[in-house]
Design a protein around this nucleic acid. Structure first.
Lengths: 348, 348
DNA sequence: TTGTAGGCGTTATCAA
DNA sequence: TTGATAACGCCTACAA
């Protein structure tokens, strides 16, 4: 059972008295062969236990069927969810994925991209922030980004503005006296900034008292806890007796806030309403289910890969599509109403 | 800026008046070149903007530097954590990873493996259960598994037995009257079964009253909740007034139990102590921090990739290592004491 | 319906 | 220290 030499088209050809070309055709255009020939070859393949070698095929026809992925990190569930959904598009498109995690290091991300390019990837999905879309565009391959600056490249994003708007509307609907949005300081160029403006616009349009609190959240759970405890203290001083609707930039943060309140009061006080973002497991699995602006991760991934594939195909026949302006697809978020706004009793 | 033809060694050779061979050497064995030649080539590469093509190199030397990964799913944080750590070994070993998620489907996993083989992967990491180690071994490439049946292949695993043992010891230490272990029905062949036997052995050795409850957990959060509510009812009937030490098979489950108790009592009652498994974010971010048997995911991943690479290298020089018996590495778990056993007041 | 010949961009083997 | 030449395993005209 030791490393038996690999069987190639040559071996099959010799064995069947066909030429290599015919064997190749068996795989790429079987209908052009006589049925009888197909049978002969098929049997020979089985008998000799042939295993295909896609590397050789790539070198010959230039199509790797590789798509590169650069993720910024793996801490937030959002990214593992997205990756999961991206990987599952293999079933529909057949592309394989080479994955790198950037960890916010510009230099290593450049190295990763070089490495990906050297493997002749046909396209790339970029979720990390460190490298500008301008630089990405120069790579001259189809690129689609998600949740990051995207001026020079195609992208697929949740309608963050709509999400922020709906979150505010939901809190308003439940009669909150003041709306609070907690977020980390965010670059206006990244799509997630829309959550802030959406929130603000709703409040302004409806003349609601509101406040956006920029805090350095999302660094670590412990820091987030400290920050949120501080915020609770502030809120209870500033808006004592008023109903506070809090919209947080993600579900994990929302859950942390909820836990703090639960620890303090043993339940979610009537004068608090909470909305998260993402519809990640953290929102469903919280001590009481948290209302949230759900990102349709499956659709995001599907569209992103679809967009890359579309460009790849366009390229293969001239380049009618790629040289045009970048396409930016938008996926509607889905508002999920749960106990953290609807009230615990209503929920069960 | 349109698809300029790709620069190859041929172009560099022509430009510098060296041969292709010399250019190749510049990359693979630069010291064998005259310093002056190195400079000339280096400049030419920059001037012509050469980009390497690893596909061609693979075809020529047979080394893809690819390792295949088959994950069972992405729902449990454990797997995204492991994947993250595996991917990060790129920095030390330079291997690239082709990732597939099996989703418990035997047929598609076989297809994935064929696909991986066709890309000439040099080794494979398998975390999914569906395909027997016997079948894996027949692939004739270095394989390392984690957290699954591993009789015919190498593996890296947490010492689950020790983990179960320590969990029981921790609960005992805090004076629990009865120890409960909640787990899904588990195949004795997979390493995680050790958690059960470790737990049982400690209890038996120390003459402790104990019980293992096999329930179909880990299917969905809602089902888990229902199951755990049921268990709480049972426990409170059966062990009323006694201090119950509950060891759950993972942190998410532990957190769900904790949440249910918190909702019922507004705090963790004195007659409950809880221990999880994994030391995943779920345990730190729970409403009160949960004690847990920590898997050293970074080490698991490091060792797993290391073991594959070791075998790959052994293969390159004859095959002294691979034909021997499978190696099974064990990583010690780390017991993490937190509020769910130590008591809330002690913790702060 | 099948075959011939050349090429994809490297690396390996000899030789000089 | 450098080169010529033949692989590597498949695909794609073009021919028959």
């Amino acid at each position: 059972m030791e490393a038996k030499k690999k069987i190639t088209f040559d071996d099959i050809a010799r064995y069947t008295n066909f030429s290599k070309t015919t064997i190749s055709r068996y795989f790429n255009n079987p209908d052009s062969l006589a049925p009888e020939s197909q049978r002969i070859i098929s049997e020979a393949l089985a008998k000799l236990d042939y295993k295909e070698n896609k590397v050789a095929r790539i070198l010959a026809n230039g199509q790797t069927e590789f798509i590169g992925i650069i993720l910024p990190e793996f801490y937030h569930r959002f990214f593992s969810e997205v990756l999961n959904q991206i990987l599952s598009t293999y079933e529909t498109y057949g592309y394989k994925f080479l994955v790198f995690v950037g960890n916010r290091n510009e230099e290593s991300e450049r190295r990763y991209i070089q490495e990906l390019m050297s493997y002749q990837i046909e396209g790339m999905l970029v979720l990390s922030h460190t490298i500008s879309s301008e630089e990405l565009a120069q790579l001259q391959i189809p690129i689609v980004t998600m949740e990051r600056e995207d001026r020079q490249v195609c992208s697929v994003n949740t309608d963050n503005y709509s999400g922020g708007y709906q979150a505010a509307a939901l809190l308003d609907e439940h009669g909150c006296d003041v709306l609070i949005h907690i977020n980390s300081p965010t670059d206006p160029q990244i799509p997630a900034y829309g959550r802030i403006t959406g929130f603000q616009d709703y409040c302004k349009e409806h003349g609601l008292r509101h406040e956006v609190m920029f805090r350095p959240v999302d660094r670590s759970h412990e820091e987030d806890q400290a920050i949120l405890e501080d915020i609770i203290a502030t809120l209870e001083e500033q808006y004592q007796g008023q109903k506070k609707g809090v919209f947080l930039s993600n579900d994990t943060l929302a859950s942390t806030l909820l836990n703090l309140l639960f620890r303090k009061y043993g339940h979610l006080p009537e004068d608090y309403r909470i909305v998260g973002f993402d519809n990640s497991p953290a929102s469903r699995e919280a001590i009481i289910p948290i209302s949230t602006v759900g990102q349709q991760v499956d659709k995001l991934a599907q569209e992103a890969v679809g967009l890359v594939v579309e460009q790849i195909n366009a390229r293969k026949e001239g380049r009618p599509l790629h040289s045009r302006k970048p396409v930016h697809k938008i996926i509607e978020p889905v508002l999920v109403r749960r106990a953290s706004t609807e009230g615990w009793t209503e929920e069960r």
